[in-house]
Design a protein around this nucleic acid. Structure first.
Lengths: 176, 176
DNA sequence: CTATGTGAATTTATTCACAGCA
DNA sequence: TGCTGTGAATAAATTCACATAG
């Protein structure tokens, strides 16, 4: 696969492809091109997706259930290994083979070496959930609440705000 | 509010703030700064968020229900005015005051002047849903399926792939 | 011959620095 | 005086173009 092929596929300049890769190493073969499997392996290594990452999901409402049902986490090597909620009726029940635990027990993540948290609780519980995750030594958080949560600098937060994503659409919609 | 204040808030350079605004007009007052309400109004106008946009949601599963429950669409002037599903058991029922209609009826969107579609159907139904939305003259699509859907150039698609968002985390998580 | 990898050239983005207005 | 708006200066990103390896 040549840089030209890849560039066409992504609608960018071939030189962009070659230069970007070159910052990380010599992945191609002159006169031949790139081996796609090698590329995937190298890119996964760069993004640290070459190992399995255990994640915990907090909040088994509609959104949490939808996230649990999401296909494609496995593709990137994610394993949702624990699920929490604060509703006594849900605690103890199983979703997708995982027993729902009490949200007041988030500290067990430390012991279980789970260091990614996914927040799918209602907006007003988002900050306290983040705080608990930080106390449990989680180092990365995927936040689905449409609010800014505050965490120490050592913790990386990625927020998905559906409203903001939708808000990008009208700009690209010509008339009306 | 000065460009310095805004810049500190966003951790960027004050000149960046001033230059970016200047591309769209003179929003500030020399010696004084910017009026925040004016800024919000102007930015909304630029992004075409100064009018109400009607949207239709297709697929009332966990994800669809979660999206419907999302607070914050109203903030940007979105109004989910129609909801569709292909499950006969769901059609006719109400969610949040809106009656679920048959997904085979998407053409009514044309008549009702709804031109944004939100796809929350299972992955294997995403493309056909997109096709139906395009036929109904929708001009913007928010796609929650982790797959590339193909649409004519006139239609703008924004895809939210939770797996990809999560995949960005490990790179920022130092050790482990 | 083909297609990479990379300095050089070019284009784009950011920041500086200051004239001009409130 | 204080802060915007903006040309000029600087920095960064993209693209060109070609020597070089297969």
């Amino acid at each position: 696969m040549s840089s030209r092929n890849l560039a066409d596929f992504l609608s960018v300049n071939p030189a962009q492809i070659r230069k970007d890769f070159s910052y990380f190493g010599d992945f191609g073969t002159r006169g031949v091109g790139y081996n796609v499997e090698t590329l995937i392996r190298e890119i996964k290594k760069i993004l640290r997706l070459n190992v399995v990452h255990k994640a915990a999901l907090v909040g088994v409402g509609n959104l949490g259930s939808a996230v649990l049902a999401y296909p494609g986490f496995a593709v990137y090597g994610f394993d949702i290994a624990a699920v929490f909620d604060n509703n006594p009726k849900k605690i103890g029940r199983k979703v997708r083979g995982i027993t729902i635990e009490s949200a007041s027990n988030l500290n067990v993540l430390k012991k279980r070496k789970i260091n990614i948290g996914i927040i799918t609780v209602p907006q007003d519980a988002a900050q306290e959930t983040a705080d608990a995750l930080v106390r449990a030594d989680v180092r990365g958080i995927l936040n689905f609440s449409p609010c800014c949560i505050t965490v120490p600098k050592k913790t990386k937060v990625i927020t998905i705000d559906i409203g903001m994503d939708l808000a990008r659409l009208p700009y690209y919609m010509p008339t009306g």
